[in-house]
C-alpha cells in the first residue's frame, strides 16, 4: 500500500517533502542553542560535558544550578561579587574519591568574555598555566597579563571565553593537581579566543615616561563594590557605577634608585558624556567638597587638572564619555604624566 502511494508521488511532491525535511533538520540542529540561556555566541555552561569519572574521582550527581535567585544561599555575601559582574548562571560539580577530600568544580557563565576577564583580573598571582595550547593571544596588552589560567595550592582559576572557572580541592597533592588541570583542560577545549576588554586600549604607555604600569595589578570591573575591594574611595557609589559602566584600575610605579613610588589610575567609561560629567560632579561633591564649586566652574572649560589632598596629588581628565582619576601622585607633574598616556577620544 505504502509502495503504491509512493509510486503515485510526482517530482514536485518530492521537492516539497525535501523542503519540509530540511526545515525540520535545521530546527532540530539549532533547537538546543535557541533554548539555552544567555546571549547567542557565548558558551553555555550546560554544554560543557564533564566526565563522570576521572582518575578514580567520581562526580556526585548532576550539577547544582545557581542563578541570581539562589546565589546568596550558595555563597552568602560572596554572591555580590558575581552579581557585580554580568552573571548568567553557575553550575557546580563535586568529585569525590577520598572520604576527607573533594574537588569542587564551579563554572560561572557570564554574559561576555570581558566579565570572565574581570573576575580573573582581581588576582593575577599564582602559577600561570595553559589549558588550551591551540589558543594564542591575538595581541598582547601592555596593561594586563595575558594569562588564561592561574593555579595555586589546589585552586585553579581560569577564563574560557565568557566562562569563569574555579576548581578547588580541599586537600592538594600532585595527583589531585593533575586531576584539577585535566578538568580545566576539558572545559578549556571549548575556548575560541583570548581577548581583552576594549577599555584597556585607552592606555598607550609612553616608553620615555618614568611611570611604568604594573600589569599584575590591573583589574577590570563595573561596580563600586569591586572598586572598593581594589582601591577604597568611599562606601558609597560616588561615581555612579553600574553594569552600564566599565572601570579599569591600573597601578603605576616609578623606580628611582632605591626609592619606589606608586600611583593609582582609575578609568571609567560611561554610556554617554553627560553621565561621565555627572559622575565627576558627584565625586567632587563627596570627595573634594572644599573644592567642588571651583572645580565645577573650571571643569566646563578645563577638562583636566590636579589638586593636592592628604595622600598626594589627585589628577583628573574628563573626555567624551570617559573619566580618568589618578591618585597618590607625589607631584602634579606625575599626575599629568600618567594622564598623558591616555587616549580617551
Amino acid at each position: 500500500m505504502k509502495k503504491l502511494i509512493l509510486y503515485q508521488l510526482q517530482p514536485k511532491d518530492y521537492m516539497r517533502l525535501l523542503r519540509v525535511f530540511m526545515i525540520f533538520l535545521l530546527g532540530f540542529l539549532f533547537l538546543p542553542l535557541s533554548c539555552a540561556k544567555g546571549d547567542p555566541g557565548m558558551l553555555q555552561a550546560e554544554n560543557i560535558h564533564l566526565p563522570d569519572k576521572i582518575d578514580g574521582w567520581e562526580v556526585a550527581g548532576p550539577p547544582q544550578r545557581i542563578d541570581h535567585t539562589n546565589i546568596f544561599d550558595y555563597m552568602n555575601g560572596g554572591g555580590e561579587l558575581y552579581l557585580a559582574y554580568r552573571f548568567d548562571q553557575l553550575l557546580v560539580y563535586r568529585y569525590k574519591k577520598e572520604p576527607d577530600n573533594e574537588i569542587l568544580v564551579e563554572i560561572y557563565q557570564m554574559k561576555s568574555p570581558g566579565e570572565a576577564f574581570g573576575l580573573l583580573s582581581l588576582d593575577w598571582t599564582g602559577e600561570p598555566v595553559i589549558l588550551n595550547s591551540d589558543i594564542s593571544v591575538q595581541a598582547e596588552s601592555p596593561v594586563a597579563p595575558s594569562f588564561m589560567a592561574l593555579y595555586g595550592e589546589g585552586l585553579l582559576r581560569a577564563r574560557v571565553d565568557n566562562l569563569y572557572l574555579r576548581i578547588l580541592a580541599l586537600r592538594e597533592s600532585p595527583e589531585v593537581r593533575e586531576v584539577i588541570l585535566s578538568l580545566g583542560k576539558i572545559i578549556a577545549g571549548k575556548m575560541s579566543s583570548l581577548i581583552f576588554p576594549e577599555i584597556l586600549k585607552v592606555i598607550n604607555p609612553e616608553a620615555e615616561s618614568p611611570w611604568k604600569i604594573r600589569q599584575d595589578r590591573t583589574a577590570y570591573f563595573h561596580s563600586h563594590l569591586v572598586l572598593n575591594s581594589l582601591f577604597y574611595l568611599s562606601h558609597e557609589n560616588l561615581l555612579n557605577l553600574s553594569h552600564n559602566t566599565e572601570g579599569l584600575f591600573v597601578n603605576f610605579e616609578k623606580k628611582n634608585h632605591n626609592l619606589k613610588q606608586s600611583a593609582r589610575l582609575l578609568i571609567f567609561k560611561y554610556p554617554e558624556p553627560q553621565a561621565a560629567e555627572a559622575a565627576f560632579k558627584s565625586f567632587c561633591q563627596a570627595y573634594l567638597p572644599e573644592k567642588a564649586e571651583i572645580i565645577a566652574k573650571d571643569s566646563s572649560q578645563k577638562k583636566t587638572d590636579t589638586v593636592q589632598v592628604e595622600d598626594g596629588w589627585l589628577g583628573w581628565r574628563l573626555s567624551d564619555n570617559y573619566l580618568a582619576l589618578v591618585f597618590e601622585c607625589p607631584q602634579p607633574e606625575a599626575a599629568q604624566d600618567i594622564l598623558n598616556q591616555l587616549d580617551l577620544s
Binding site: 555563597m75 555575601g77 560572596g78 561579587l81 599564582g126 595555586g152 578547588l168 592538594e172
Partner: peptide, 10 residues
C-alpha cells in the same frame, strides 16, 4: 588573610 569572597587556599 585575603578577603575572598570565596576561599583561596593560598
Amino acid at each position: 588573610c585575603d578577603k575572598g569572597p570565596q576561599f583561596d587556599p593560598r
